[in-house]
Design a protein around this nucleic acid. Structure first.
Length: 614
RNA sequence: GCGCCCGUAGCUCAACUGGAUAGAGCACCCGCCUUCUAAGCGGGUGGUUGCGGGUUCGAGUCCCGCCGGGCGUACCA
């Protein structure tokens, strides 16, 4: 058994060390937690490994001088085997350097831990995550990318922490798009093509019908003078009214539509959803939701529609109010149809009853912020006020021209094509790199075409996902193959390459890594690069915690970048197989194995594959 | 009109939510392959954090006002 301490993250341990010393100064426990929170990784490595910034505010609260208080606290720290030095600097910063022996022992402990030092969540919570949510009647496009991969990454991170996560894909399976498919099927079907490849033919029909719409018109509901669009809306209305023929077609189409979406999910490495309860699933419940809202007096009739109040609890009616106030949310339109607010309210009720979650996360782009604000407020009014409701908002994917990403012809790029392109470029990169490395006499593995294609797939798909996940999700980002497929910098390729270099060491002399996990040798941290790498390895739990706490996957990529850089430095300066002594060789092999495991695990949290050779 | 978000190096982005001298990558310049993959490593140039006030020991971060941009503003989702 590794020492218990090794399974806690470094920050937690440091805070634990300061807690008893700080408690008498801090006053109430809430403040204490704030002050402990001011212990953090050093911003500048010259200042040590960690730094504590609580002395300034604490001194202010107690009327002391910050440096003196800092010195007092340092002097009162209990004896421990963790901190090498704690020095007071500047206006009262405490710079902390950890003992190398401690780091070495901790790394050795982590080596035996399948969780790589990440403590199980305590207590574990139940999450429902709603993401991807495509219209299944048409091909996935770039607009679905972020929700899908951010949601998938969050599900992976929270599950890895030990939480229970229910993933639910709120499919758009009941909208106008199905009227379009039905209309297309009735009027433009190529029967032979449909029998041969129904998915492809349905996709063709969708595009074909879409192209019949007048220029500039969209698929939205609402009055139209476009005859084709009108016909599609009528087919949709018949479907919703329960028309047997249309319903039969819908049932016939659905498996094919789902298969098409699933093919993309498979390629992107998206975990299977626990549920795919789409609009059609909630449709029967909508009337009941509205009835209840009316019965309880929460809903009001306004301008012929049934509405619920805005987040401020008001239903603006006069022109002045309408100008200033946020609008109410419509739960039943004048024409009797329900809206996505109705559906979302039904969904909350269903999920609370069936899953009993502590939190529900909606991974949806930022433009729907107002909808979620209004809808969450209403859900709380309905008594769902003990469940965390969070809109995991994200920015737009832009083209190189900083406008919403589009194809040259102006259309919305299909996801499948984007992946194809990235994979093809990934393959070209590989060939290029292979040639240049070979020309310089490097020991590049010769690979079969099948293996190369596999590498290209991992690199290409990884590039798209990492390129996205490495951005702060709240900001827009520019979709650029050049940037995401770069071999330098904070990219998937760099991480995958670092992983492959780890594998190469073990492969070279056919070393079995099992021993480093079950019966780890002593770890020696003599070189600066070894120490820095060990510290980085031990920070993995911090990164996972931080990413989960604010639902920010880019904190995992930031960590990976630091780790992989540390490894590259180590790789350059510390021979492993030809280490100066057998002890050092063993120690370094352990480090390399652990680096490989952490990189693989961290990439897995992002849903990105590794390959053994590149 | 009102509301939300954004503005950081030539470009693309960080900055652990108020901490020390604002960091990376690309691009540009210089250097490193008879030792495990050079898709690598080291060094250098580059900043009035849109502008102006304020809050305080300390502001890219918080507050106010401008300028510029994106998005949203009841019957699409």
């Amino acid at each position: 058994m590794p020492p218990r301490a090794a399974l806690m993250n470094l920050l937690t341990q440091l805070r634990g060390l300061f807690e008893p010393v700080l408690a008498p100064h801090a006053g109430d426990p809430g403040k204490l937690a704030d002050y402990l929170g001011m212990i953090r990784p050093a911003a500048n490595p010259d200042h040590g490994d960690y730094q504590a910034n609580f002395a300034m505010p604490l001194a202010k609260a107690t009327g002391k001088k910050p440096p003196e208080l800092a010195k007092e606290v340092v002097a009162a720290l209990p004896a421990n085997d963790l901190v090498e030095s704690a020095t007071v600097a500047g206006p009262g910063f405490i710079n902390l350097k950890l003992k190398s022996d401690f780091l070495a022992a901790a790394v050795r402990g982590v080596a035996t831990d399948p969780r790589l030092g990440v403590p199980p969540a305590d207590p574990p919570k139940r999450y429902v995550i709603d993401y991807s949510s495509p219209n299944v009647a048409k091909p996935l496009h770039v607009g679905h990318l972020r929700s899908t991969i951010i949601g998938d990454a969050l599900a992976r991170v929270l599950r890895f922490q030990g939480h229970t996560v229910v993933t639910d894909n709120h499919l758009g399976d009941w909208g106008t798009q199905f009227g379009m498919l039905i209309y297309g099927y009735r009027n433009f079907l190529d029967q032979a093509a449909y029998e041969a490849d129904p998915v492809r033919e349905l996709a063709r029909l969708y595009v074909h019908v879409r192209n019949q719409f007048k220029q500039g018109d969209d698929e939205d509901e609402g009055p139209t003078d476009d005859p084709v669009k009108k016909a599609c809306q009528e087919e949709t209305a018949k479907l919703h009214a329960g028309d047997p023929a249309n319903l039969a077609l819908w049932n016939q189409f659905m498996p094919h539509c789902l298969a098409e979406v699933q093919a993309i999910y498979d390629r992107l490495g998206i975990l299977p959803f626990d549920f795919e309860h789409g609009e059609s699933f909630y449709n029967p419940m909508l009337q009941g939701v509205v009835d209840d809202l009316i019965a309880t007096g929460t809903a009001a009739v306004s301008q012929g529609a049934v509405v619920v109040p805005n987040a401020a609890g008001k239903v603006p009616t006069t022109p002045e109010e309408l100008k200033k106030e946020e609008p109410p949310a419509i739960v039943r339109k004048r024409d009797g149809a329900f809206t996505y607010t109705t559906s979302d309210l039904a969904t909350v009720r269903y999920r609370v009853e069936h899953f009993r979650p502590d939190a529900m996360l909606y991974v949806v782009d930022f433009r729907q912020a107002l909808h979620f604000k209004t809808f969450f407020a209403q859900a709380r009014r309905m008594g769902y006020d003990r469940v965390e409701l969070t809109h995991i908002s994200f920015g737009s994917v832009l083209g190189e021209n900083r406008r919403p990403f589009a194809t040259r012809s102006g259309g919305v790029p299909e996801l499948g094509r984007l992946i194809d392109e990235a994979v093809q470029l990934g393959l070209a990169k590989y060939e290029e790199s292979y040639e240049s490395r070979k020309a310089s006499g490097h020991d590049v593995p010769d690979l079969t075409d099948a293996v190369k294609r596999d590498i290209a797939e991992a690199v290409g798909v990884g590039a798209i996902k990492y390129g996205d996940l490495s951005q702060n999700r709240t900001s827009d980002y520019v979709f650029s193959y050049d940037k995401m497929l770069a071999t330098e910098g904070n990219t998937a390729t760099y991480m995958q390459y670092a992983y492959a270099r780890c594998c190469a060491i073990f492969r070279k002399e056919n070393v079995d890594p099992a021993r480093f996990r079950s019966d780890p040798p002593a770890v020696v941290l003599a070189e600066p690069a070894e120490r820095a790498l060990a510290l980085q390895l031990l920070r993995f739990p911090e990164a996972v915690d931080a990413a989960a706490a604010d639902y920010l996957p880019h904190l995992v990529t930031g960590y990976l970048w630091d780790l992989a850089k540390s490894y590259s430095v180590f790789f350059e300066s510390c021979p492993v197989l030809k280490a100066p002594s057998p002890e050092l060789r063993d120690s370094r092999l352990l480090l390399v194995d652990l680096v490989a495991r952490v990189i693989r695990q961290a990439l897995d949290l992002l849903g990105i594959r590794v390959v053994e050779r590149m």
